[in-house]
Nucleic acid binder design. Structure first.
Lengths: 408, 408
DNA sequence: CTTCGTTTGGTGTTTCAGAGAACATAACAC
DNA sequence: GTGTTATGTTCTCTGAAACACCAAACGAAG
């Protein structure tokens, strides 16, 4: 509720001795470059509204710290002096960790959301928090010489399928992993020495899609992901992720969609994720289980009426949840990921029509349903965004570490 | 998504020739004084984090413009030099307009959210947009000499029960008033000469309760109002009102709560506002209709089992909608206004328990249900907040008008 | 191929906001 | 009274950004 006023060299604020105004502008430029991957100086001037000379100074400062670098102008030729292009330094990176029921995935992601490396460590059984941390720490330890030699790591972001308090990175409850009150962020920090933050996986995915994916340039987005373990949701409103009092906001998987529906593991009945699930479809398809691509293939191949009916039944419930979301958030984009994306792809017009007829006129016409655009890298990019957060808020705080800029 | 950078004397920005940094800090102090009504200089220093000397300069500037005034310290005596108290000038005011199906209410509200005057103009029939504007303009015209003599009016805010695009103040659809695509804000500006903005009534009520009411000091709040015409909602998340792509967000009255429920006027079925309504209760009570206080009295006096059952039925549906809201927003406060407040007062423990058992553990324990705190002034305060918005964003833009400060 | 207009980067100057230090002031505590 | 503490006041200092001017690099027109 309070903007951060100018506060030069406050004795209690060690991170940066800069004028807040300067810090803000440096952060603004760094974020823009990060989000767009390439941006000419002229474009930065327009976007920030700052003076040409000021932008020049700022970029010079960032380049001197090795955070961005400029290249000769190659953009479309046009009248006037060409403007050099500014790109994020490839040496700045964040680590991403994503524990799931059958694997822990660790990623190395550059500024610009470029996934440099992705290591999926399959586990025999559902990993405990301790195990997940150990796996991640071991993999990171294995990369350490490379990390320390070629990168500046700004932090680790952990995407957790469950309720996470992002303030301290504690997992309150991750039902499918069986975790409860696990201080994952602290554990990983102690194990690796890198600053670490944790948040809900769907929330991070929503942010990733907002920045680099199907929601680029928008300010209001609803993301829904259907996975083996249930349905997660993330909501971006007014350009910002909905956090709520403790960061638990966005649990759209437990939207009420059916009177006298089945009991959900959350304690309530009629939740979206009990009515709309991969498992029901696999059962009808005669399969014992599988992942989303397998489901897609099996559904495409099936001509069973019972399967078709179940698909349309699930689309109906999905429409109810989406209608609620449209009425409450008035989003520009709704992103369906995982098997929800598969369901949508089977009958896009059906869902679109249901939504148009059920949601209120104004919001309904504005909301466009999209499949996720970032594919398998989505969660790595989202989690890394968390690892970048502190860096992007104050880029100069990270400029002190050695390591020259990668290009010049 | 973009912070406003420094931009001194930009030729295209006439509103204020100040440095953005200064403008921000002036706005910050003005808003704080507005929200708290009284605040000592020392408290302002702590809250803003600015230097004592800077706060002194800023307050001096605001006082010179007659926007705030300082009084001798009267606060609790404590060690150290007493700090003078800063209050908003009583000459700064905004106008509030609230069209309903049976009346148009016009209010004059001071900084600090003090309702100075409230005029309810009862109408024989539902007013058209033109009529509502004419009524408001006439009442304002009647006050004009007083307004011009003793006040500086920062603007008019219109609270509309329906879908409003706050960007241009156009009413997209107000079903109960029968309005469609009415440019109310523009009409009122043309009729009165004052700058005017319009927004959804429940959204404004939510903001009023956040600032001055049951949500004071919080950042996440869900407001639900039950009126004769339906259920409206407003949501505050991360300290900001949820707007959505076109400002239509927050329509919680159309949350899905019942499979195969009745058809709602919005086109869907099973909406909260078709299942939970005053009308059903009045019918069972044998009354032809009435307002909320009458309902409260009748319900208190009734001992009918059918009425009791209907109350519990409605509480059940309300709980479903609230459970959704708690899961999606993780709010600290849920405010129930109008007849929803009456329902809650009949059996607070029942609703609390339903919510605790149905919503997810983490969010459920944090959400506290409250009745609205601002009573009959709520909508005037909320609408006036809209009239204050531009002033609070750049207080110096309004300092030019004559009129000395009211006190010194 | 030359010239002109246009757009941009670079440099030095100017303005201004806020921090900080030193001092003044007004309360309480003893 | 004297000491302590918290605050307002004044002045100086620093740094950031705008601005004006010049140089550079391009397309367009002749």
């Amino acid at each position: 509720m309070m903007s951060s006023p100018r506060q030069r060299a406050a004795p209690t604020a060690p991170p940066s001795e800069l004028d807040p105004s300067r810090r803000n502008n440096l952060a603004l430029i760094t974020s823009l470059v990060h989000h767009h991957r390439v941006l000419s100086r002229a474009q930065l001037t327009k976007r920030t509204g700052l003076n040409r000379s000021t932008v020049g100074t700022l970029i010079g400062q960032l380049a001197a710290l090795g955070l961005v670098y400029e290249t000769a102008p190659t953009g479309e030729a046009q009248v006037g002096r060409p403007s050099p292009e500014v790109r994020p330094s490839p040496s700045i990176a964040a680590l991403a960790v994503y524990p799931e029921i059958d694997a822990v995935t660790i990623g190395l992601v550059n500024l610009g959301g470029i996934v440099q490396k992705k290591i999926r460590f399959a586990t025999e059984r559902i990993p405990s928090a301790r195990e997940a941390v150990n796996i991640a720490a071991a993999v990171i330890e294995g990369m350490r010489t490379e990390l320390e030699h070629s990168y500046r790591i700004t932090g680790i972001g952990v995407a957790v399928p469950g309720l996470v308090n992002p303030d301290d990175g504690t997992v309150r409850h991750a039902p499918h992993l069986g975790w409860r009150d696990e201080p994952v962020a602290r554990m990983l920090t102690e194990a690796t020495g890198y600053a670490c933050q944790a948040a809900n996986d769907a929330s991070l995915a929503a942010e990733a899609e907002l920045i680099f994916g199907a929601g680029a340039g928008r300010d209001n987005l609803v993301y829904l992901n259907g996975g083996a373990s249930g349905i997660g949701g993330g909501i971006i409103s007014n350009g910002r992720l909905l956090r709520g009092a403790s960061g638990y906001a966005g649990e759209l998987g437990h939207t009420f969609v059916r009177t006298s529906g089945e009991q959900c593991h959350c304690g309530a009945t009629g939740c979206l994720e009990t009515e709309v699930s991969q498992g029901r479809l696999f059962d009808l398809l005669g399969l014992s289980g599988g992942d989303t691509p397998q489901l897609e293939q099996a559904l495409g191949a099936s001509s069973s009426a019972a399967v078709a009916e179940e698909v349309s039944r699930q689309l109906g419930f999905l429409a109810i949840a989406l209608r609620n979301a449209v009425n409450t958030f008035n989003p520009e984009v709704i992103i369906l990921d995982g098997f929800l994306g598969v369901l949508y792809a089977l009958a896009p017009a059906t869902l679109d029509d249901l939504l148009l007829s059920q949601a209120m006129d104004g919001p309904a016409t504005q909301a466009k349903v999209h499949p996720a655009a970032l594919g398998s890298n989505l969660m790595m990019i989202g989690a890394a965004e968390l690892g970048f957060a502190r860096f992007l808020a104050d880029p100069t705080g990270f400029g002190t570490t050695g390591l020259g800029s990668a290009a010049e």
